[in-house]
Design a protein around this nucleic acid. Structure first.
Lengths: 235, 235
DNA sequence: CAAGTGATTAAGATTGTTTTAAGAAGATTG
DNA sequence: CAATCTTCTTAAAACAATCTTAATCACTTG
């Protein structure tokens, strides 16, 4: 089903997580050091990584930074309480979520499921066969086959990247998608680039679909969360 | 299952508690002094602490104060009868509950269970995987995916922290949640900050969802207990 | 009334978003 | 083949929202 890489130097934690994850049908690999995790991640088809911050040889933060140079797989950090400053650092560096030790394995499992569900609905390149070729949200219509977008019936000319971002947002109307979510899907999991890249595309999109780009009515931002496409709701 | 740290200088009490707790499936550690308790708490994944107030070397109150500088784990104080003034003091300093000596072990067990249940249902940040994405309490609707809140059908714009606090209250409608409970959940167990932090967020929330913030009809305070969200009841 | 607790306010630090501009890469055209 | 155009990326700055804190006031309770 899915391959999960567990990276922690405490054997008890690893085996406990393994038991829970395997019971849910996930395949697991494990590493004791950041270096080993990087190697395993490079050599295998990993769908999610559980990464401890405190480890010998190469700590989790460094490992994560290295990892992010080459891929964008979901990472959940395992942190000890006292390392709370590292939390923020970790999320800035590119973790998708974190759990503080001591953790409840059930909670970790929930987060794993949550991340993988996101990965499935957003990230998988193997788009479903039954995915519609046409989406409608409010006054926007998007035709995937014809690569055309209509706003109030009038054609709008978008660049390929703009088109893909808009399509993603229209596939999840009213739902907030973080820049990382968008990056995963539109850039096909390539390493996350500059922070502002998506902001610029969003800006260009707004210039084309909003009456006033500075006061967006459709493509809204949710502070510290991401962007969403609002359908029929009034401001 | 859960790790419980017992801190008391009387061996009889410790062993008695151990027997009862282990019979219920809890793992136990024990310390004889406050200093030792702090060390054990720092080095292990502790889920709950039973802490005696009267101890050599470092008393329980001091130990608790120190502990609270770094973490927010549930603490149940063990106090002697004559120290009832200390009870309140202990709760101010950051205990979650207290039991007076001589105590009935069954009662201690009940309180331990109660605290851990609270910790489970409240303590994990993103709750369970099957947590609904939508909550309704009275005239309030909250959409977790869209990060949107409607009051009488009208959208209300909340900041991330306000949103999380309101979500927590809506997940437990009519239930009183102490500031410490709220802190545990929303700040993910980080050490408790300034007293007024939550009060400020509550104030901001009330400004956004109450007709008159000074006379709240939804987000009510229960003196010396905490806050609760009242549904459709009339005053 | 005193102690404990909640409410209010405002300021500063922090963090996230928008905007602008410039350059690189690739396609298209004369 | 060079010139031009489009698109994408990046960085920097300006801008904006949010969070925390501390100080002060006001209310509740015994």
């Amino acid at each position: 089903m899915h391959n999960i890489l567990i990276c922690d130097d405490e054997p008890d934690i690893v085996s406990a997580l393994k038991i829970y994850l395997q019971a849910e049908g996930y395949a697991t690999l494990s590493a004791r050091t950041g270096r080993e995790a990087l190697r395993l991640a490079a050599e295998n088809d990993i769908h999610l990584i559980l990464l401890d911050i405190m480890m010998p040889e190469m700590d989790g933060i460094t490992a994560l930074a290295r990892l992010r140079e080459t891929c964008n797989v979901p990472v959940i950090l395992l942190t000890a309480k006292s390392e709370d400053t590292d939390k923020v650092l970790g999320l800035n560096i590119g973790a998708d979520d974190y759990v503080t030790k001591p953790f409840n394995p059930v909670e970790v499992l929930a987060r794993v499921k949550s991340q993988l569900r996101r990965y499935l609905t957003l990230g998988s390149r193997t788009a479903r066969d039954d995915a519609p070729a046409r989406y409608t949200v409010g006054s926007l219509e998007l035709d995937d086959r014809g690569k055309q977008v209509l706003l109030d019936g009038e054609p709008v000319s978008l660049t390929p990247t703009e088109f893909e971002i808009l399509k993603l947002l229209m596939q999840h109307p009213g739902e907030v998608l973080s820049p990382r979510d968008i990056y995963r899907k539109v850039w096909n999991g390539e390493p996350y680039g500059a922070e502002s890249t998506i902001a610029v595309h969003i800006r260009h999109l707004r210039e084309k679909i909003e009456i006033n780009p500075a006061e967006p009515r459709l493509l809204k931002v949710v502070w510290a969360q991401g962007y969403k496409l609002d359908g029929g709701t009034r401001p």
